Amino acid sequence: MKLYSSVLSPYARKVRAAIHALGLQDRVEIINVNISASPAEVVNANPLCKIPTLLGDDGTAMYDSRVIIEYLGVVAGSDMLVPAAGMARCMVLRTQALGDGIADAAILYRGLLAAGIAPDAGPAVRQMAAVERGLAALERMARESAPDAVARPDAGALSVGCALGFLDARFAELGWTGQYPALAEWYARLCRVDCMRRSASQDTAGTCPSGASYR
C-alpha cells in the first residue's frame, strides 16, 4: 500500500499513527508530496487532490483520513481504533470529529489571516472561538477519563492528539496547556505512546507536535 502524506498535515499524521498502532508499518510505503503542485499520482487516486490518500494493494484508493483509518482496520482485521458497532463506535467517531474539527478551524483561521483577514474580523473570530470551545470540551473529557485511557488510543484519541500537536506547532501563542491542565496532562501521556512517537518522527521538528494541511 502507498500513503500519500505530508509532514505538515495533522490528518496525515493521524493516519501514520494508525498505521503503527495497527502494526501495518511494513505494509505501507509513506510518500510525502507537495499537494500544492497537484501531483499526478494523487490526482489519479483522489479527484479532490487532498492528503492523506491511501492506495491499496489492489489499486483501490481511500480518502479522507477517517475513511482510511476504517479501511486500515479492515486490512488489519482489527477494530481497536474504531469499534465495530454500538455506542462505543459512536463515541469514538464523535471524538474523532471533534479533533478533526479543531484542526479544521485552526487551519481555516490561518488561511483567513494569510488572505489578509484581520484576527478580530468576524470570520476569523468564529474559527478561533470554535477552537477554544473544542479545547474546553476536551478539558472536560480529560477530567473524566481514566489515567490509563491513552495506553491503547483509538481513532478519537489519535485525532485529538494530532490536532493538539498542530496547535503546539502553529499556535504557540495560545498557551493552551496552561489553560487546560487536565487536557495537557492527557496529551503528555499520549505523546509517550509508541504510535504517536513514531508518527512524530516523520515530522520536520522530530517531536510530538506536528503541522497542518488537508484532511
Score class of each variant (00 low, 15 high):
1 M>C: 01
6 S>E: 09
11 Y>E: 08
17 A>N: 10
17 A>D: 08
22 L>A: 04
22 L>C: 06
23 G>R: 04
24 L>Q: 09
28 V>F: 07
28 V>R: 05
31 I>M: 11
31 I>D: 15
32 N>E: 14
33 V>T: 10
33 V>L: 13
35 I>S: 04
37 A>D: 15
38 S>Y: 12
39 P>I: 06
41 E>L: 07
43 V>C: 10
50 K>G: 11
54 L>G: 08
59 G>P: 11
60 T>Q: 15
61 A>Q: 06
65 S>D: 13
67 V>E: 02
75 V>T: 11
75 V>G: 05
76 A>H: 10
82 V>I: 15
83 P>M: 08
89 R>K: 13
93 L>P: 00
94 R>P: 00
95 T>Q: 15
96 Q>E: 15
96 Q>Y: 05
98 L>F: 06
98 L>S: 04
102 I>T: 02
103 A>V: 01
104 D>S: 04
105 A>N: 12
105 A>I: 08
105 A>Y: 07
110 R>Q: 11
110 R>D: 06
110 R>H: 09
113 L>V: 12
113 L>S: 08
115 A>W: 12
116 G>Y: 06
123 P>I: 04
124 A>L: 08
125 V>L: 12
126 R>Y: 10
128 M>S: 07
130 A>G: 09
130 A>Q: 15
132 E>M: 06
136 A>Q: 11
144 E>T: 10
144 E>L: 12
149 A>G: 14
154 D>S: 06
163 A>D: 03
163 A>W: 01
166 F>W: 10
168 D>Y: 01
169 A>R: 14
170 R>E: 08
171 F>D: 01
175 G>C: 00
175 G>E: 02
175 G>I: 00
179 Q>W: 09
180 Y>A: 01
181 P>Q: 01
182 A>Y: 06
184 A>N: 05
188 A>K: 06
193 V>P: 05
194 D>M: 11
195 C>N: 09
196 M>V: 12
198 R>Y: 03
207 T>S: 13
211 G>S: 03
211 G>H: 02
213 S>Y: 10
214 Y>M: 08
